[in-house]
Design a protein around this nucleic acid. Structure first.
Lengths: 134, 134
DNA sequence: CCTCAAGAAGACTTTTTTTATCTTTTTATG
DNA sequence: CATAAAAAGATAAAAAAAGTCTTCTTGAGG
């Protein structure tokens, strides 16, 4: 349970690698993929998602590639994980608005809320800078 | 991410319902399934898993059914969730022994360890008694 | 000892999600 | 205009989840 998918793992590996490179250096996707051992086409999809929400900035054409969208200490593990895996929701009940028909009388609900906030809290305190340095 | 499967949801619903019934009363699986709105055949599989590890006690034959394997305040949400979803492992790295080839140099690893222990801690503090009363 | 009422076990099917890959399009450089 | 790169979309294969069906085993009551 609660297992990160391979996509999430690849995402972390890829962007942590990018964070470990010189800030101003544009990285080729194919180089990143090779460095972190991820299928390039799959990593491309992941970086497209990153790009859409500004986690990375992309450049097309000759000399193109990727750099981080903001400083490595302003990107958290939570940002990365939620970018590709979607919001951290241990149970459908936790989704605001779309509450199950049992939610009002459901004692389990607050437990999942707690889990959600704890996990988000942990992931939000870890930045790419820390992960890339170490 | 971290979403409970339907199986996990059903498992919780089913056993919490059982915990809400009189302690000595043997419950028919079909009654439980109807009460918590879960496909009976699917719930049967889940209760078989419960039975194997002693979370519930089963009786076959006429007048058979299920009761809790031990008092409701001695069964935690963690017991229930791990019974059907397997151990709580946010990332493959967390598995002892089977560590990925990056784990030694992997800064993400301790973060997942932390997530794992926090989540387990939360779930382990909630008992079926609390969930069934409320 | 026979019948019936339950759960146990295993095989199987369907559906959904994950994990890719391939092709075409867009954008930028020189 | 040719080439290099990412973006986008379609598709395919594999794995996991969700659910069903059939047969087996156990126990109670007559």
């Amino acid at each position: 349970m609660m297992e990160l998918t391979r996509k999430g793992e690849y995402a972390i590996r890829g962007i942590v690698y990018l964070a470990s490179r010189p800030t101003d250096q544009v990285c080729l996707l194919s180089d990143i993929a090779a460095a972190v051992d991820v299928p390039p086409t799959f990593l491309a999809k992941i970086f497209q998602q990153f790009s859409k929400i500004g986690l990375v900035k992309s450049y097309r054409g000759t000399g193109g590639g990727f750099i981080l969208g903001r400083p490595a200490d302003k990107i958290t593990l939570l940002d990365v994980v939620e970018a590709v895996e979607g919001p951290i929701i241990p149970n459908r009940c936790v989704i605001n608005g779309i509450d199950c028909d049992r939610s009002s009388s459901c004692n389990v609900h607050p437990v999942w809320m707690n889990v959600q906030s704890q996990v988000r809290g942990i992931l939000d305190k870890v930045t790419l800078k820390e992960l890339a340095e170490g």
